[in-house]
Nucleic acid binder design. Structure first.
Lengths: 356, 356
DNA sequence: TTGTAGGCGTTATCAG
DNA sequence: CTGATAACGCCTACAA
């Protein structure tokens, strides 16, 4: 592989001049410059990122740490980050933690000595990352925290407005006439889960609704959890007429449990999910959901990181992206308040409604 | 950040000894060894991957190039590769090409000078990669091609048995009594698409079925393509009674088009997808599909790469993974041959069948 | 068994 | 404006 020395020989200039031409670090006279560039093109020379990084104390790598790319929420985040990174000449090193703090630390340690310019991290469930990430900052890397923010986090961050999103969803159900509204939350040690629950409760409080104790069920962020918790909810008296599922996978499990109990969504029970994944469009009924742009989340995070690379003294920013309530087929008024025609009419076997 | 020199000072030994201890490249006497390790632990020292890579002419990075992580097929591949990489001490640099050969080349060029140990690539649609990847081989990297194999590819590769998978699916439809079977293929410049079509045709030939010309529709590998092509198919005379969609997203589009035309799957028309994504379980009806393990695909690719890193002289391998036909709700015998009870009975509004 | 020194490919500093 | 030259941190002959 060609190196600078060879280019210098070919162009008949010194090594330093080649570097100056390549980095624009000094105004080199045109004839020399051209000779250098010709040699570069002739050989297909590309500078060694390894040597460059070693010398500059920094590479064009961004470390990205996420729980699990198999969870359909995360590909969007990764893609958003990669696009912004790529268009700025950076590359992404992707690491999955499975929400395992040990793995997270291993990745963090292993990548630091590559001297990435930035670190974009969606923390594993239980982690307090300040210790680990501090060493990145010391190494000059820009650290951005995404989606879930550890307590006491002081660096840049991007989240969505979890509380507001949940509030709007719950409020919509209230507006439809629902009074018996349950919530299946995500793991409550996550800030995002906590905030969604807060928003849910605020909506109920505003409507002066008091829920039975078991109406709030904590679940894992997956279908199995949603299924299990819904089974519990469906056995409660009074049975809830609506469920706010704090992510779409939970909602998927809820739909499954509802069908298995020979109930119908939305006629017997309404369901709203959270995230607005593509799969909400292909379920039956189509799933209403609090949409958030995972792509924007990732893109914003990468941009924040690159901004900080460019200016270390920039004041810390906490970006909060908006959610959007997308109502599809999975919600309807409760049976006993027949104020509105149900949204789905095509299913002949649907239970007859009391009004209209 | 601590470096080897500092460790040497702390332990009161020479720089070379530290290196020997760390790399096990010479048998260092225990007391010295211990002093070195103590210093390492005390400082939390980790060797600079940049310097090490520069010196060794190779890093513990694997470059992974895929079309688009947002396509639900690819996260599994990435995860499989990352798991194998991680458990062997390697990290993955992830690049999306959007099937854009230009982008692919940019990524390839940008990553080469990081001296990754391996390159795992799912080629962009049109690319002949031999030129690009040759430079990786020269740089000592192990190159593995996954899922789609360029013509004339001579290196290691992993694919699935596309032809056999499609054959089995088509054959199953034939066995059910279908004679009017259409196929919506992926882009036919991809080997995977070609092979699936071949398998489809072989099954029909074996059953002595001759299809009208338009029964083979070429589509992009997405929902929109599947939707559009299905619309075309549904207007043909005779209308096909079954469709083999060459991936699940196409099948999703087919389901949508069928519903929009007020037809029913599987009563009016059967659909089988390809890939066996999770989403096939949550559609209505649940989608039958030719399952392949994207995770295994990625894991095998990474393993092949690491094997070659360990032994450059290993003979070239072409792994071909098996598919498995998963029959769910989206297939039934054609209406005019009432040999079997349809699989779905729950929908009251379903058209009456001619027999049974 | 341990220490020394050269060099991997860059960049940056500093004379000319 | 151009050219030497010294690091960056590590590995590895080779010498002791």
């Amino acid at each position: 592989m060609a190196n600078m020395k060879k280019i210098a020989e070919l162009a008949g200039v010194s090594l330093g001049t080649v570097s100056h031409v390549l980095n624009g670090t000094a105004r080199v006279r045109e004839p020399l410059r051209k000779r250098v560039m010709d040699a570069v093109h002739a050989t297909g020379y590309q500078p060694s990122q390894l040597a460059r990084g070693l010398r500059r104390d920094k590479t064009n790598l961004l470390a990205m740490i996420i729980p699990d790319i198999l969870n359909p929420f995360f590909p969007g985040v990764v893609r958003g980050a990669e696009d912004v990174a790529f268009s700025n000449g950076y590359r992404l090193v992707l690491c999955n933690t499975d929400n395992d703090h040990g793995k997270e630390v291993m990745h963090l340690n292993a990548l630091r000595t590559y001297l990435p310019s930035g670190l974009i991290v969606i923390p594993s469930d239980f982690s307090d990352l300040t210790a680990q990430t501090e060493s990145y900052r010391r190494a000059g890397a820009a650290v951005v925290c995404v989606d879930r923010i550890p307590r006491h986090w002081t660096g840049d961050s991007v989240t969505i407005n979890n509380a507001e999103g949940a509030y709007q969803a719950a409020n919509y159900l209230v507006g439809l006439g629902h009074r018996d509204i349950a919530c299946i939350t995500g793991p409550l040690h996550l800030t995002s889960s906590q905030d969604r629950l807060k928003g849910f409760k605020r909506a109920l409080r505003a409507a002066k609704i008091e829920s039975p104790h078991g109406y709030e069920q904590e679940s894992t962020f997956d279908r199995a959890g949603g299924y299990a918790k819904t089974k519990i909810l469906l056995r409660m008296v009074p049975r809830p007429t609506a469920i706010l599922a704090c992510n779409d996978l939970i909602a998927l499990g809820a739909l499954l449990a509802i069908r298995e109990e020979r109930l119908h969504c939305p006629e017997d029970i309404s369901v709203i999910g959270f995230d607005g994944l593509d799969l909400t469009e292909t379920t039956t009924p189509q799933l209403s959901s609090v949409y958030q742009s995972s792509y924007q989340l990732g893109a914003a995070a990468a941009q924040l990181a690159l901004d900080r690379v460019a200016d270390k003294t920039h004041p810390v920013r906490h970006l909060v992206l908006k959610t959007e309530l997308k109502i599809r087929e999975s919600v309807a008024p409760p049976k006993n308040t027949g104020s509105t025609v149900p949204l789905r009419k095509s299913r002949a076997a649907a239970p007859v409604l009391t009004a209209q």
